[in-house]
Design a protein around this nucleic acid. Structure first.
Lengths: 154, 154
DNA sequence: GTGCATGCAAAGGCTTTGCATACCA
DNA sequence: TGGTATGCAAAGCCTTTGCATGCAC
């Protein structure tokens, strides 16, 4: 039962991953599966460090490098998205079958609120066309205070 | 003559800087002035490394740490803005009396194209209001290919 | 078996910090 | 004169790389 649920939740992702690996003549190893699963099971946004710690619980010999290398692959094949905290560190979030979205980041409590605004996306296209620029991706982060932090003073 | 032009260009910035330093009981040193001038004289976007190299030409004993420390101060008082290349490195651009703007970044040649779109800014406000979020700043970067790189194949 | 993957440790790149000396106010 | 600022070097932090061994295919 537990396995069924897991299967259901992660089936698409696992397939994408193994297909990607095969295509690139890479191998599906226990570590890569564990990292992918840990990643998918985590809520929202994880750092490489956090992923490493969680994966290490299940496989004590897990190495840092493996996590980083696997994150690269997962990003490559569209399963993960790099989030930029603007301080030189990265976090990652699942990005499969998810609509693109951007983030509001509370500078007080660190809350990461997702949002999507198609009008903004359209305007981004317009503005880049005007400059002869061809967008392949974008990042937009709004920094400020979330509702809770505004109320609680600060 | 050359000095006059310099004065004219940088007067406001120098005043802002010395006022800020005084307010914080910090000192206006030759190095800080040199770094500020070098920064203002540079075109567009510089890295700490580049600033350091340029300043070093005029003062061979200039240290890296001084550049970083001064950049912090200049950012603090609104003279400089940190730009995030999304790879854990920073560049800085003058940010005094400049209208806010965002960037398109060519992933091939590294070109950094500035743009401003008031409609997007307005929509950002709208979207955050809808979430009860209070924006204090934002970053938006569009990644892709500039006109030149599109033409030159790649 | 062959070649990629792993784990460990060491190296990298950028930024910050510590400390004795130098210098502004 | 007193307290920052500087310059140098060393440490930090996150991430990547090198290399011998292990493992998937």
């Amino acid at each position: 039962m537990k396995n069924q649920v897991k299967e259901k939740e992660g089936a698409g992702e696992h397939e994408v991953f193994s297909r990607y690996l095969k295509e690139k003549d890479l191998k599906l190893t226990a570590q890569r599966e564990l990292i992918l699963e840990t990643f998918l099971a985590s809520e929202g946004h994880v750092s490489a460090e956090e992923l490493y710690q969680k994966a290490k619980e299940k496989q004590p010999h897990m190495g840092f490098a493996t996590v980083y290398r696997t994150l690269k692959h997962m990003t490559q094949c569209g399963l993960a998205r790099e989030l930029d905290f603007g301080d030189g560190r990265f976090k990652y979030e699942p990005d499969f079958n998810r609509r693109h979205h951007d983030h509001m980041i509370c500078t007080n409590c660190g809350a990461y609120i997702e949002f999507l605004n198609p009008e903004i996306e359209e305007l981004q296209e317009q503005v880049s066309r005007k400059h002869g620029f061809k967008i392949t991706s974008h990042r937009m982060q709004l920094y400020g205070l979330c509702q809770k932090c505004q109320k609680s003073g600060k």
